[in-house]
Amino acid sequence: MGTFGFSYVGAIFLLCLLVPNLLWTRCRPRDYDPSVESRSLLALERTGQVWTTCAALVFQDFNLRPWTPWSWWLIGAVALMVLYELWWLRYFRSARTMADFTSSLLGVPVAGASLPVAAFFLLGIYGRVVWMLLGVTVLGMGHIGIHLRHRREIRKETDI
């Protein structure tokens, strides 16, 4: 269920999200159209963001512990977060279009949305915190859903 206490690992993961997203607010894609984002998906995304942020910070179960085979879940979460950061580097070096923003990385579709959701899901497994798993599921439905809608709009525009 989860042991209350501050999680420095959760805080580091959140910083890995926060920094590139703050930069993104100054470097949005030129063809970004927020009207594509449905209210229901936005509600799921925002709810999931708050839920996941709270879970990441208030459960100390995510902090480092002595090595066990269970630690591979944390290694997987860190690897996905590193890929997420690499995806951002590629985006910031690109022409910064919606096609760049909704691009895949190493076969992971809409990597900018999928990788952090998957990373936090693995972190939830590592910590054995069901609250994180539930929050990330809600976040994923909204966040990945929004990115997929943007991707669909790009494909419609290129088919015209």
Rank of each mutant, 00 (worst) to 15 (best):
F4V: 00
Y8W: 15
F13S: 02
L14Y: 14
L15C: 14
V19A: 14
L22T: 07
L23S: 12
W24D: 07
R26W: 12
R26M: 12
C27T: 05
C27V: 00
D31C: 07
D31F: 08
Y32V: 02
D33Q: 13
P34K: 14
V36M: 14
E37M: 03
S38W: 02
R39K: 13
R39G: 15
R39V: 14
S40I: 14
L41C: 03
L41P: 01
R46V: 10
T47C: 11
G48H: 04
Q49P: 01
W51R: 06
W51I: 04
W51N: 03
T52Y: 02
T52L: 09
T53Q: 06
A55T: 04
A56Q: 08
L57A: 07
V58T: 11
F59K: 01
L64E: 08
W67F: 15
W67M: 13
T68A: 14
P69C: 07
W73V: 00
W73S: 04
L74I: 05
I75C: 11
G76T: 08
G76V: 09
G76Q: 08
V82T: 00
L83F: 04
E85P: 00
L86P: 03
L86G: 07
L86Q: 10
W87C: 09
W87Y: 15
W87L: 11
L89N: 11
R90E: 11
F92C: 01
F92W: 04
F92H: 08
R93F: 10
S94H: 05
M98Y: 03
M98W: 05
A99E: 14
S103K: 13
S103A: 15
L105I: 12
V108H: 09
V110M: 05
A111R: 08
G112I: 01
S114R: 03
L115K: 06
P116F: 09
V117F: 05
A118E: 00
A118P: 00
A119H: 08
A119L: 09
L123N: 03
G124Q: 07
G127V: 01
G127C: 02
V129I: 07
V130Q: 10
L134N: 02
V136G: 07
T137S: 15
V138P: 06
V138D: 04
G140W: 00
G140Y: 00
M141W: 10
G142W: 03
H147V: 01
L148C: 01
R149K: 13
R149D: 02
H150A: 03
H150I: 06
R151F: 13
R152A: 12
E153S: 12
R155E: 14
K156I: 10
K156F: 13
E157R: 15
T158L: 07
